[in-house]
Design a protein around this nucleic acid. Structure first.
Length: 762
RNA sequence: GGAUCUGUAGCUCAGCGGAAGAGCGCUGCAUUCACAUUGCAGAUGUCAGAGGUUCGAAUCCUCUCAGAUCCACCA
């Protein structure tokens, strides 16, 4: 054996030995209870980061259970990651001075597909570098046809159960990325904007969005506000930048009397609160901002009787981006004497796109929604009844329940190409003009709902539109478009929206296992543990619980273990802009996978951030070397001594007090580690093992008995071998490579690799 | 606005009712010894502050200060 442990000499060979030996693939044994973990599917396009390296937690559990003799499945997969991947791809296109608008839908899809296929293997190879004992024979990709077909079937099933609807409500729309998002994906940023006080007929109103005032449809005041009670219900003529308009004052108890002047303009098309208010009072929805985030004054410019002076003004605003238009309008308001004052220091929070940071525009666009309340109830119940337990902290359980108890319907439509299209077909003959694609230069030009909304639809008219929509949905719900069953029309258009990626990944537990009939599904579902970072508790974990319970009748996990974020040595979040990102593969190259794994686990308290430094990883590399040299010491001394008996109860009596003491401590340690693992106390276990191996066995036991070992005392060597072999087993889940190598060097009775050796006490 | 978490050695953090701990860093000594990716010895703390419960509090309770996070979103 070499003087020092050099991981690069061993890791590749060891992993190949495990994989070729088929040890990652479980044998289904109906007499035994399986242990199953699904790997939180990484973006198939992403190289590995420290977050992925933390899946070490799962490998620890999996390796432990495998040694315990459980049929153990750790199922890997990759995610097409809809918007994430399309975003990355569009950035790539931008470098080539192209954009998504240069391609038709199918071409763009194929280009992205090719891009992903090229990168797919990178992440997989990196997982192997970390030593993850994933069953690669079962690898799944989120766009595998059989997975998609189950997802589409879920959509159909939701429709049948009346848990699905299409509605034209306000969507958080990113004009830059060209898609809407669910509420969860909105990031609110605090910023300072001018608050303008505008003259509004007899009133003064305060607003940060003067550009939307052209299409205000009402004014609202608190019914308790004595200043305005006399006006409630009255319609007033108000002078604006484009001439006089009529507006009614409506009562709204939500209006804060202390804010601004206590009276508010109502813009149902561009504000969520106003939209609800509009619904209540039957106000028209009158958008003035389009999906590109530009002002749209066509409603005014097409007016035949418009005053030429105002027409000119509208022409000036038309097509400007919101921010630019606002600036010019404020100038015009000032010159018309309509600007009362400006508060420059108004701080508020603005919804922005989590991908590109653009300000999101609330826009009225029809989207598909899942009614989540009934689904959420079951998912919450599973936790309340302790069918599923959440580790490590109560606070995550509370977060989970609070979210499910207050859940809103889920917008699953995305206006991107990368992902499965929503399986709905519209008949353009009997139900024309339903949908519009904002994505690319689609060849099919269809008059869209958004255009229709611009024509000042009332809420009644919108809901009427939705009723006519549901007809072809009922009639035409197959995977391939056939002639319309109502009018026999052949101009059928599939919904151009794709699914929110989370709609697919929320079904991962049963789609990957082959719901509903496969052996795997019957045997491995529900899975044992889900381990993931807490930041996707709502996006993914809660939704998997909902969909699993809905589709299969069982929630998908018996336990949910939430781990924390990896931060740098100073507790700072790792980010490219800070320049403190530690690349896991570089660390594996330099110090070995075992060192990185141990560094991630050691000293990481449950629920708190995990501080990782290169110093710490180096420290753990030193620990690997310590183990190596303990093994080396044993092997060297055994070489000169024949017939070292194997440890057993009979020999125990021949041991010295010192031997007996270390074995007794080892037995206590075994019990303790087993207990730690069953309670997800990985850090505690790793610290105990480190302490015992280095400071009890190496520093004390070996040093005190050194003469006995070097002189070849068979009894002493028996004890030491027993201690080291047992220690290798206990450490194997944490540091699989170095323990497997040491194991292979020590003469012993078993010929099986360590990975499938029985857990001590088992 | 609602909720939650954290404050312990220079740094990162364990401990969460019974004599203040670990890793890294630091200081001194050792060196043909399994290992210098080492060993031995050592220094460093009003356990954020105040009050309370208790025979006993870093640990439980209340408040204060400081930092962080989640949810809801305000014209």
């Amino acid at each position: 054996m070499d003087k020092a442990y050099n991981h690069t000499d061993h890791e590749t060979d060891i992993y190949r030995m495990w994989e070729d030996g088929g040890y990652f693939t479980p044998a289904i044994d109906k007499k035994k209870k399986p242990f199953t973990i699904l790997l939180p599917l990484p973006n198939a396009n992403d190289p590995m980061h420290m977050g992925h390296a933390l899946f070490t937690v799962q490998d620890i559990l999996v390796r432990w259970h495998r040694m315990m003799g459980d049929p153990t499945l750790w199922l890997p997969g990759g995610d097409h990651a809809g918007i994430e991947t399309q975003y990355v791809y569009e950035k790539k296109l931008a470098k080539e001075e192209k954009s998504r608008f240069d391609f038709d839908r199918d071409t763009l899809y194929l280009m992205i597909e090719e891009f992903v296929e090229k990168n797919k293997s990178v992440n997989r190879d990196q997982m192997k570098r970390l030593g993850f004992s994933l069953d690669w024979t079962r690898y799944k990709y989120s766009l595998d046809p059989h997975i998609v077909s189950i997802v589409l079937d879920t959509f159909r099933s939701l429709h049948k159960d009346r848990l699905l609807y299409r509605d034209a409500r306000l969507v958080n729309y990113c004009p830059r990325d060209g898609t809407g998002f669910s509420d969860l994906e909105v990031v609110y940023k605090e910023q300072v904007d001018p608050l303008y006080y505008l003259k509004y007929g007899p009133f003064t109103i305060a607003t940060v969005r003067p550009e939307t005032k052209f299409r205000d449809t009402a004014l609202a005041a608190n019914p308790k506000d004595k200043r305005y009670t006399q006006f409630i219900g009255k319609t007033l003529e108000i002078m604006g930048l484009l001439g006089p308009i009529n507006m009614t004052v409506i009562p709204d108890p939500d209006v804060d009397m202390a804010f601004g002047t206590g009276i508010m303009k109502v813009t149902p098309a561009h504000d969520a609160h106003d939209f609800e208010l509009g619904k209540k009072f039957g106000l028209p929805v009158t958008p003035i901002i389009d999906t590109r985030g530009k002002m749209d004054f066509s409603w005014f410019l097409t007016k035949k009787d418009a005053d030429p002076k105002y027409r000119q003004r509208a022409q000036k605003y038309h097509g400007l981006k919101v921010a630019a238009a606002r600036k010019i309008m404020v100038e015009d308001l000032a010159s018309d004497g309509l600007l009362v004052k400006t508060d420059e220091n108004y701080t508020h929070r603005v919804g922005s796109c989590y991908k590109c940071g653009s300000v999101l525009e609330p826009l009225p666009i029809p989207q598909w929604y899942v009614k989540t309340k009934p689904l959420a109830q079951k998912a919450a119940m599973a936790i309340r009844k302790k069918q599923t337990r959440i580790f490590p902290l109560k606070r995550f359980e509370k977060m989970y329940l609070d979210w499910l108890d207050n859940i809103e319907d889920w917008n699953i439509s995305r206006q991107i190409v990368w992902g499965p299209r929503i399986p709905v077909w519209y008949c353009l003959d009997c139900n024309p003009g339903i949908i519009l694609s904002f994505l690319t230069n689609e060849k099919l030009h269809v008059r869209g709902t958004y255009d229709e909304l611009k024509k000042t639809y009332t809420f009644d008219e919108i809901s009427h539109g939705l009723q006519t929509l549901s007809a072809p949905l009922e009639a035409e719900f197959s995977l391939n478009a056939k002639p319309c069953t109502r009018c026999n029309g052949t101009r059928i258009l599939q919904e151009t929206d794709t699914f929110d990626t989370w709609f697919l990944s929320s079904q991962w537990p049963y789609t990957t296992l082959g719901y509903p009939d496969s052996e795997d599904f019957k045997y491995f579902y529900p899975t044992s543990v889900l381990d993931t970072m807490w930041d996707i508790l709502f996006f993914w974990v809660a939704r998997m619980m909902m969909m699993g319970a809905y589709r299969t009748g069982n929630v998908p996990f018996k336990a949910i273990h939430l781990h924390s974020r990896v931060v740098d040595a100073h507790g700072q979040k790792m980010s490219k802009s800070r320049g403190n990102v530690v690349n896991p593969i570089e660390m594996v190259d330099r110090y070995g996978a075992d060192a990185l794994r141990m560094a991630l686990i050691y000293g990481a308290g449950p629920g708190s951030d995990i501080a990782l430094s290169e110093d710490k990883i180096r420290g753990m590399r030193n620990f690997s070397n310590k183990l190596w040299n303990m093994g080396r010491f044993l092997v060297m001394n055994m070489e000169n001594t024949k017939d070292v008996p194997f440890y057993n109860v009979d020999i125990h009596n021949a041991l010295t007090a010192s031997d007996k003491r270390i074995i007794s401590e080892l037995n206590m340690l075994t019990t303790q580690i087993t207990k730690d693992l069953s309670k997800y106390r990985f850090s505690d276990a790793s610290q105990r093992l480190y302490e015992f191996a280095w400071h009890k066995v190496a520093d004390v036991y070996i040093e005190k008995n050194k003469e006995r070992f070097t002189s070849g005392d068979p009894v002493a060597l028996t004890a030491l071998r027993h201690v080291i072999l047992t220690l290798m087993k206990l450490l194997h889940p944490f540091m699989p490579f170095v323990t497997e190598v040491i194991w292979s060097k020590i003469p012993k009775k078993y010929d099986k690799p360590l990975i499938v050796s029985p857990w001590p006490g088992k």
